[in-house]
């Protein structure tokens, strides 16, 4: 089961707020998004509806408050909305997936300072 493109774009935007890009890539990097899509599509299918509802609600709130879709509002506005919803189980699921994919990725390893020799 796959997410709609609009939902996938929101997941990527949220991933970049969970772990923002700085001198290293953020949580919304292509490598992380492949892993997240794989897990959502194959292992977390029972939570897809929960995630879709969460994303839709987030988008509606963004449009009401800021007249734009979630992905088009400022990062400060995104962070404010995510802070309000950070105890939602769908956010917890996304945060877990973003962290595991990121810290297992090359970008995450670089950020942490994990150096592979041999």
């Amino acid at each position: 089961m796959e997410l709609l493109d609009s939902h996938a774009a929101m997941v990527q935007a949220i991933a970049d707020r969970i772990l923002p890009a700085d001198e290293t890539a953020g949580g919304g990097s292509a490598e992380c998004m492949i892993h997240i899509a794989d897990v959502l599509g194959n292992e977390q299918t029972q939570n897809i509806d929960l995630l879709r509802m969460y994303l839709d609600k987030l988008n509606v709130t963004a449009k009401i408050r800021h007249r734009h879709r979630f992905i088009d509002i400022t990062i400060e506005q995104q962070d404010a909305l995510l802070t309000e919803t950070e105890n939602h189980p769908a956010f917890a699921l996304l945060a877990e997936l973003v962290h595991e994919s990121y810290w297992a990725s090359e970008a995450g390893q670089t950020t942490a300072g994990f150096e592979v020799r041999g």
Binding site: I18, L19, D22, D79, A95, W103, A112
Partner: peptide, 11 residues
């Protein structure tokens, strides 16, 4: 759990 502070904690 998230945000720049989470990333910097690992760093």
């Amino acid at each position: 759990r998230w945000g720049a502070d989470a990333k910097n904690w690992m760093r």
